[in-house]
Design a binder for these strands. Structure first.
Length: 644
DNA sequence: GGTTAATCAGGATT
DNA sequence: CAATCCTGATTAAC
């Protein structure tokens, strides 16, 4: 895997754009191969194979029951003990990256040894000419990084929650900052991306429209390096010519003098505010303000991330990557407060994908008044005919195909009657006040929750047991998620590239439930007859087991074991979708899909016939196409034949 | 009385 | 060390 990048020198920037770059790094190593340099090969903190073996087998022996949380708990404890210089932590075989090896010759070794983490690089670089395979590689790397971040974030909160219960004390005043803990752990393991170069322009693997729920996540992927400041820049004292250079800005309404017209932003410089964000003194041309001015002077583009109020996320905010802008003007102005502020006119560079923030707003309007916004193209405003909680739109504005309207809408998978034979009273849990760790269903899941309190899937597994109709717990039980049907507004739509496809009008938060993949389950004999008739069937065993990637902590935990519990036999049934189906049937295939298939049981206990539940593998922006990994080679023409 | 704004506290990075 | 377009919860204000 190669990544071309050009080191930016100021001579180049001053000369004509066609000048050949002076320095080229044709063999820049991919990020995950660079990270090992953070490990000191001479240190005696080597991974202790014996102890990790013992732990792993331990986890396996008791089926992961209750040791799982202890282990994760230990993981966090060790990580933070290490951070605080606790002696205990040095016994941890995982205790890597204590003294990062520096490649920055400007600073003395003594300072490096004392510093906890390596400083960000001061080398300005622009990534160019990525081949499609490079794109895929970096996209995958970013996605894996973000999945790990999310897992750690949710687990940190859960961990805190459980500790609170153990202590039995009063509910804590402030909930723990999972976003910060996750980023710290990843940093300690050298898993932050794009720290070895300061990238100007696009970040490999991040595309316009990508959504982030936390500022820290922007730091982890390297899109924006500062956790609070709105302007990220290479400081003057680290710049090769002594001038600061801005690389990215965040516009989230923090300054009253901002004016945002989408393609053009009047961005206010930083500084001059008190702690309540009121402008109380004049701004100065320093720091980020000077950096923006210098970036304008050299014609250097900046990444723009917009912060939005969005009810769907827990923090009530969402960050959207909106692409690259050029700074065309800057001036000193008197702000609304009466104090002087610096202003910058940012103009969006042309020929980029639609702005994520504009798509968000457009999708919002589609939800509330679809026919007003898009008068043509709707075939149906609910193909489920009120069977789903939320209407499912059918939209086609490119040809006359109306196929999906011809099928009956199947809300839930139909299993053969014998699957339900041994189901009855007593097969569920008896909990009446919240299904906790003693819940029968929780035990079946290996002793821990399958979902967090927002219904986010915590860890993919061979099968998940939800509470069901034979449990005593109420419908509001935390262990009932996928059985309750779709929550987001979906649209089945026609596209030139993938035929029929599915997209959402809402933001789908990573790990949240999307819908079931429904069909009529056939017995072996029935399936044979169908196959002889030439009808195509869905074979659940063909789906790639992408759930193994969800909640995978192996990158930060050498003791991590892939969940093999509860073990289930291979899925050995077929589903007919030739007459009845639901929206899942229209999802396209991709080998780097944004949706995973998680088997779930709730209304019966036959592990051979789980419901196939679909969950989001990443934050899926509104109107972005959903895709499942059908386990086929990646070829856009190889879409599932029956539903195209 | 419920939503929204101001405020406080706790933090990470540069 | 202080400054920074953060989060999460509490309190004040409509």
């Amino acid at each position: 895997m190669e990544m071309n990048s050009v080191t930016i020198s100021f001579e180049d920037l001053n000369s004509t754009p066609t000048t050949t770059p002076t320095l080229i790094f044709p063999k820049l190593e991919p990020i995950d191969e660079i990270t090992p340099q953070f490990t000191n090969p001479n240190s005696n903190f080597s991974v202790n194979a014996t102890s990790s073996q013992t732990l792993s087998s331990n986890v396996l022996e008791n089926g992961g029951v209750d040791s799982e949380y202890n282990r994760i708990s230990e993981l966090f404890r060790a990580a933070f003990a290490q951070r605080n210089g606790d002696v205990e932590a040095f016994d941890d075989p995982d205790c890597r990256a204590i003294v990062p090896v520096s490649n920055d010759s400007q600073v003395s070794d003594i300072v490096i040894a004392r510093r906890k983490y390596e400083k960000r690089s001061s080398e300005l670089v622009r990534v160019t000419d990525l081949k499609p395979e490079d794109d895929r590689y970096f996209r995958d790397l970013v996605r894996k990084t973000r999945m790990l971040y999310d897992s750690l974030r949710v687990l940190a909160i859960l961990e805190d929650e459980i500790n609170q219960q153990h202590l039995g004390g009063p509910t804590k005043l402030t909930r723990s900052r999972g976003d910060l803990k996750a980023s710290q752990m990843m940093r300690e393991h050298g898993l932050w991306l794009n720290r070895d170069k300061r990238t100007v322009g696009a970040i490999p693997g991040v595309i316009v429209g990508d959504l982030f729920l936390y500022r820290m996540e922007l730091c982890v992927v390297g899109l924006h390096g500062t956790p609070q400041a709105g302007i990220d820049y290479l400081p003057a004292n680290r710049s090769s010519n002594g001038e600061p250079i801005a690389t990215s800005v965040i516009a989230s309404g923090g300054y009253e003098d901002d004016e945002d017209a989408g393609d053009v932003i009047i961005y206010t410089g930083q500084g001059g505010q008190d702690k309540n964000s009121r402008q109380v003194v004049h701004q100065k041309l320093e720091g980020g303000n000077l950096a923006l001015e210098r970036s304008m002077h050299y014609g250097i583009e900046v990444r723009v991330i917009r912060g939005f109020k969005y009810a769907g996320s827990s923090s009530g905010k969402v960050y959207v990557y909106d692409g690259l802008y050029r700074i065309t003007e800057s001036w000193f102005d008197v702000g609304k407060s009466g104090f002087g502020v610096y202003k910058y006119k940012l103009v969006r560079i042309e020929n980029q994908p639609d702005m994520g923030s504009a798509v968000l707003r457009f999708a919002e309007s589609l939800r509330t008044r679809p026919l007003e916004v898009r008068p043509m193209g709707y075939i149906s405003l609910d193909i489920s005919r009120k069977k789903e909680n939320v209407p499912v739109f059918l939209f086609n504005d490119i040809d006359n195909d109306r196929d999906p309207i011809c099928y009956d809408y199947l809300l839930k998978t139909v299993f053969p009657p014998y699957v339900y034979q041994h189901v009855g009273n007593g097969s569920g849990c008896q909990c009446t006040d919240g299904c906790g760790s003693n819940c029968f269903c929780t035990m079946k899941n290996g002793g821990h929750f399958a979902y967090d309190m927002n219904g986010v899937l915590l860890r993919g597994k061979p099968v998940i047991f939800e509470c069901g109709p034979h449990c005593s717990c109420p419908l509001t039980c935390r262990n009932r998620v996928s059985q309750k049907g779709v929550k987001n507004r979906f649209e089945v739509f026609r596209s030139r590239e993938t035929g029929w496809g599915v997209r959402s009008l809402d933001l789908i938060v990573a790990g949240s439930f999307i819908c079931e993949y429904t069909g009529v389950v056939l017995t072996q004999e029935q399936a044979q007859i169908f196959t002889m008739n030439g009808d195509s069937l869905i074979y659940p065993s063909h789906f790639a087991e992408r759930w193994v990637e969800w909640g995978d902590l192996s990158q930060i935990d050498s003791n991590y074991v892939r969940p093999a519990y509860p073990s289930i036999p291979p899925l050995d049934f077929a589903m007919d979708v030739s007459r009845m189906r639901n929206l899942a049937c229209y999802m396209s295939h991709s080998s780097s899909s944004n949706v995973l298939v998680q088997p779930v049981l709730y209304d019966h206990n036959n592990v051979s016939f789980p419901h196939l539940m679909l969950f989001a593998m990443e934050n899926i922006p509104p109107l972005r196409e959903l895709s499942i990994d059908y386990g086929m080679p990646d070829d856009s023409t190889a879409k599932l034949a029956i539903c195209s």
